[in-house]
Design a protein around this nucleic acid. Sequence first.
DNA 1: GTTGCTATTATGACTTGGTACTAATAGTAA
DNA 2: TTACTATTAGTACCAAGTCATAATAGCAAC
Lengths: 192, 192
Amino acid sequence: MRIPKVKRQEKLRETIEETPFITDEELANKFNVSIQTIRLDRMELSIPELRERIKSVANHQWNETVKSLPLEDVIGEIIDLELDKRAISILDIGKEHVFTRNNIARGHHLFAQANSLAVAVINDELALTAKSVLNFKRQVRQGERVVAKAFVEGINEKGLTLVQVDSFVDSEKVFSGEFHMYRSTEKKENNE
Amino acid sequence: MRIPKVKRQEKLRETIEETPFITDEELANKFNVSIQTIRLDRMELSIPELRERIKSVANHQWNETVKSLPLEDVIGEIIDLELDKRAISILDIGKEHVFTRNNIARGHHLFAQANSLAVAVINDELALTAKSVLNFKRQVRQGERVVAKAFVEGINEKGLTLVQVDSFVDSEKVFSGEFHMYRSTEKKENNE
DNA sequence: GTTGCTATTATGACTTGGTACTAATAGTAA
DNA sequence: TTACTATTAGTACCAAGTCATAATAGCAAC
């Protein structure tokens, strides 16, 4: 069964970004079209042929230095905040957030945005993340805007505040996290 | 003026090691011999042709040793690596890692170190984090050294590879994470 | 001078993963 | 029916080779 051209081309680009060493023949098999269609698609999308891609990868300088994250406490820009209820922040994915080889955002930026929003939504500036459960739904690319929404869901039996954070690109969920937060004002014990 | 064969072949090997993207034609011009001679030389020296060399570099297999790092941006310094088994990295917490108001390391740096180590330990450079469960045990301060240790624990029923990462400061556990990783070579389905 | 060997060069068929171009076919909307 | 888009097929050509065969030149041994 064949998908529409626009969708196929979108997936083609993603596939080549994720597996740059794939041949046109393999792509034709994968998308159930002819090799000429793949080549027409690549031409329309300005995606170079396999050997050019291999050469680009080989030529690229991989030894990037680790980039320090921004010094702000909040990753992203808070655009809505209701303490102890909910908050929203946005993060525009720039090239400093992505792996240069495939323009995919590093997971820890998504986590950093979500985590800092979870801390920010709590009416306690000394709140700490004790535990979190993260789900990465799909890769985020340079140029996309991540909207993170945090909801305070209550306190569990251990006295930790539960904050759920869901992140979206264009109403498509790309990440979700469950954050179990210490509040400094409700700590049962103070140990380090 | 032409140099003897043995010397030429020695210089040929050196030249290709220094500039692996050089063509046979360029080598023939450089050594003042025919392109067939270069090809005979390469055959005798078991030096692969240009496209194979480019492919090797691109695949990061050229001169790969255990101490060569995988192509991910690793947070921290890998000091031990056994692919698909275990890895260790260290991260010295500087002021760029901490909140300025209390010198406490932000959680996402610990996560970033652990996550990148979980990716690095997997023998698949396209590995992705699908899900993770994080436990922050205590705060980490500026000036402390975080030693993260990753162990590949196996594959769960969903086909994801489980990697456990524990981080220590002076043999005291400060963080633990359970990472559920996609491998590109074992994907059960391709959805997004 | 001849023979045998090595080194070098030339030639041609073929491979792989394409580009570029032309042309044909099918589906669909107007 | 027409016009357009999407797709496919066919063909010439390209680059950087491999592989095989054959020719030539230089040189040492006899």
